[in-house]
Write a protein that binds this DNA or RNA. Structure first.
Lengths: 347, 347
DNA sequence: GTTTAGCACTCCGGGAGATGGAGTGCTAAA
DNA sequence: TTTAGCACTCCATCTCCCGGAGTGCTAAAC
């Protein structure tokens, strides 16, 4: 059977109507919405074909039709009109992203909340950390004979520091030596190599020096590993409670539990700026009845962030996609401008 | 009318039964639970008295009784037996708090999740930041002629640092001078005085120096203000969906919205280690039908943290109180041991 | 005076029909 | 190929009904 232009039009009407009403769409409604050029009987014939082809489903005989995942997929790929944001909306997005220099993670989570309240679905955000980040420079500032401050600059120009309580007394000369060793042997290598390097050096130096060195290195490893880890933050999970498909408390609980605990398995776009996953296209068990739209944006050189939205398969793809793009662009600009040159990420 | 010992016993049975079943408790059940020493008819007489006195309520004639807020209050104050945690539970709590040195906020939020999953209610946690925190030491590390690293140590021995892009070229001599100025004039004063001090110094120095100084100071102010702000984190809000009192999606949505957006207005214990607020004792509109149990613990010298739990008025106060105490002690130990002496809070 | 048995009464919750509306599928005609 | 017409299906809603749980009261027993 062929998918005629009219069939596509009908599918589009069904999808868009169902998105807004969450009720099966009947032939009469469709006929009216298509301008009355054809009768409802004709529509009915077409609908039967669309069901047979797998684009629509029927909850039961004598009910209207609802789109199947395959139907949504076709809609998203071909039928959906790319929505433009109004100037006011763009304005609002940028305003929501207007924030002072703060901890990266806080900026991210605030963005998540903004996205969620914008699209009225749960949102998730993440900064995908740089893998294999290296230290680029070490400093030690003496506080007293048992305490010093480690300062470590990393490849992405972020700086981290901490007060270190030394396990033994240390003199100025040793300190300088230590810094020298650190900068010579422990810069420009990834965290997982640091421990190996440290072991190699064990024999060549005094036990005291080694102790101090290993204390510092272990701090460096911690920090680098922490920045490599990517953390996903969810926001606005309670939005789903407004949706008719989650009236059932158990269903809502399941999804919310997933969003709270298993967020690591939320989809990340592999390439391309945007990805849409519909119902069973998701791998996670808990997302089989939901759709996910996720956009990515650039942060630093080879770092990427992402903003995503989780909703029912009946989600307003066009609106969500447009807004998500707006946010991704805004965040890209925010990080592109503020982070590298002047207000670098904070310690 | 007098509140006899037997009335109290009956009240206790009603509260504890209702806590576990969420169903009105009938006279027969009570009689059975009290060992059959009195008949249900006697209990009925007593129940009528308790209703009249305001300790119990009746959803409608010919239904069992449920405790009123006043009833819960009496229960919490007098009747509740202080529960002891088993060794296994204490073990589990300490295990849940076993974490590597990480960002303070992350430790806190992880603790929140642990608490929530322990008691099966939403939890909230916060570190109440030190007000009027001051810088205790500044350092500047030159990177190149346009960039340097600011390192600031604070009164609580935490260290923060950041790469600073200078607005003009700077020489080694100036840098030393700058550090000297910073350490002389901007340590041991709170953030809100820094700007004033800066203004006073404007005239006494060259415009170039002033520019550099103000850049550094503004960083310091940002950091100090940020640490003073207290942030409350909620976890496990979806737990409420399991409770029969929140089967209604609207109710659940309202409370979850509150926990997500207005968490700042969640109660903080003013003094004493633990506080219990029952139903209308809460100020927040959204908490009128819920109870809050909150415990506090010490962090540093004059810093306090808190862990709290939000649940239905029918919450298992004894169990929650015991576990919360356990967590508070664990966190107290965690911070008391790890933070000040050795693994100080991270930059 | 307090406790208990007995009994009529109330109220809720849930199941069984009954009803009507929305929508379909099919047939036959245009 | 499209359309009008019609019988049919299925769901949602409403009402009604009934049983069970629990009460309040009264009168007798302790």
């Amino acid at each position: 059977m062929e998918l005629t232009e009219r069939k596509k039009q009908i599918l589009k009407v069904v999808v868009e109507d169902y998105i807004h009403t969450a009720e099966p769409v009947g032939s009469k409604t469709i006929a009216a919405e298509m301008g009355g050029s054809v009768s409802s009987a004709t529509i009915r014939n077409e609908l039967a074909d669309l069901v047979e082809m797998g684009y629509l489903e029927q909850p039961h005989t004598s009910a209207g039709r609802i789109p199947s995942p395959k139907g949504y997929r076709l809609y998203v790929n071909e039928l959906m009109e790319r929505q433009k944001l109004t100037i006011a909306e763009t304005e609002r997005i940028n305003q929501a992203l207007q924030m002072k220099m703060e901890e990266l993670s806080r900026v991210i989570s605030q963005a998540g909340r903004a996205v969620s309240s914008f699209v009225n679905y749960p949102a998730y955000v993440a900064a995908v950390g740089k893998k294999n980040l290296c230290a680029s420079r070490f400093d030690l500032l003496s506080v007293d004979e048992y305490n010093c401050i480690v300062v470590m600059m990393m490849g992405d120009n972020r700086v981290k520091s901490q007060l270190l309580r030394l396990q033994l007394k240390v003199e100025a000369g040793q300190m300088a030596d230590l810094v020298e060793q650190l900068n010579r042997h422990f810069t420009a290598i990834p965290a997982d190599e640091m421990n190996r390097r440290l072991m190699e050096m064990a024999e060549e130096m005094s036990p005291q020096m080694f102790l101090l060195l290993s204390q510092t290195v272990s701090y460096a490893v911690d920090v680098l590993e922490e920045s490599g880890r990517r953390e996903i933050i969810t926001a606005g999970t309670n939005q789903i409670l407004k949706l008719p498909e989650f009236r059932d408390a158990d269903k809502a609980h399941e999804l919310m539990g997933f969003l709270a605990d298993d967020k690591e398995s939320l989809p990340v776009p592999d390439e391309g700026p945007m990805k849409i996953l519909i119902g069973p296209e998701n791998v996670s068990e808990a997302l089989q009845d939901t759709s996910v739209v996720v956009a990515s944006y650039d942060i630093g050189d080879d770092m990427r962030g992402l903003v995503g939205v989780v909703g029912p398969t009946r989600m307003d793809y066009a609106a969500v996609a447009a807004r998500l793009t707006g946010f991704a662009e805004g965040l890209s600009r925010l990080f592109g401008k503020e982070l590298p040159p002047k207000e670098d990420t904070q310690t």
